[in-house]
């Protein structure tokens, strides 16, 4: 439970943080809420030489409405998101998802940016940002760029974020209340065995699935099956949900076999769709 030696660095600005990442290269790691990184360090599975704590940089934990979009700073904690009155009204999927993460202590420390950058295949946020078609803003030595959620998750624990980039904020659309997140928890860790987020919009639906495969994905076959329908029937939803795990290579471990994960992906998709459509 004692990490390997490391040096602790605390930049005051995003630019300083980027400069530190450039200087120390792959020996450096950003520290946000620390609730994924520190456990890995304590087990010595991760042994970064430099820790770049971005926790004191001002202006990274905002939650606000700007130009018809909702903007959430990378350092906004799960708890802040869960409690945000603005989000409850204008993007209720985010507070709903936050409520499913860990326990109160985890939600008090863990951040949405850290969770997305970490891209745990069983993390909850990836499903939500995929279903919201979020824009993810990265800042690096080459300036700023925006990556669509759909292209952000590259593989297991791997995202489009370069080692010298900082995830700064997430922008999502204002949505109606026709959203839902249905999750089956892994009993020990509380992470998702299958988590499905659904956002119903004019003329369509977006479905994000986490926990099932090595990375979170959009269940596009489900989306296509429901395209153009504003009030699908129960059978329509069931038929569409059955496509949630189509051509997906599922994870398997002592908690859930690939077969069970695929099954839960379908069940939770159907449940989330029914709730979102009010069906």
């Amino acid at each position: 439970m004692y990490p390997a030696p490391f040096e602790y660095l605390r930049p005051a600005t995003i630019d300083e943080a980027i400069a530190l990442l450039v200087t120390h290269g792959e020996d450096a790691k950003i520290l946000a809420g620390g609730h994924s990184l520190i456990p890995a360090m304590k087990l010595r599975l991760a042994q970064p030489r430099y820790i770049v704590d971005i926790g004191r940089i001002r202006g990274m934990s905002h939650i606000r409405e700007t130009a018809g979009r909702i903007v959430v700073g990378a350092m906004a904690t799960h708890d802040a998101i869960e409690r945000s009155a603005l989000l409850r009204e204008k993007c209720p999927l985010l507070p709903e998802t936050a409520g499913h993460i860990g326990d109160v202590q985890v939600r008090n420390k863990g951040t949405i940016g850290g969770s997305l950058a970490h891209a745990d295949p069983a993390g909850d946020w990836p499903a939500a940002v995929l279903a919201l078609d979020a824009d993810i803003e990265l800042a690096g030595p080459r300036g700023r760029r925006t990556v669509k959620a759909d292209g952000f998750f590259v593989d297991l624990l791997t995202t489009a974020t370069a080692p010298d980039e900082v995830l700064v904020e997430i922008r999502v659309p204002i949505t109606s209340a026709k959203v839902a997140y249905e999750k089956t928890e892994q009993k020990a860790s509380g992470f998702a065995i299958a988590g499905v987020a659904v956002v119903v919009e004019q003329g369509g639906v977006r479905v994000g699935v986490t926990g099932v495969a090595a990375k979170a994905y959009r269940a596009k076959a489900v989306e296509r099956a429901l395209a153009g329908q504003s009030a699908p029937t129960a059978e329509g939803i069931a038929r569409a949900a059955a496509l949630a795990a189509e051509r997906v290579e599922a994870l398997g471990d002592i908690h859930a076999s690939p077969e069970y994960r695929l099954h839960l992906a379908e069940v939770n998709t159907a449940r989330a769709l029914r709730r979102a459509y009010g069906n």
């Binding site: 599975l45 994870l251 471990d253």
Partner: peptide
């Protein structure tokens, strides 16, 4: 001991 849930996925990657 601690990575069993990820080993399969890591191996595939």
């Amino acid at each position: 001991a601690v990575g069993s849930r990820l080993i399969g996925a890591v191996a595939r990657k």
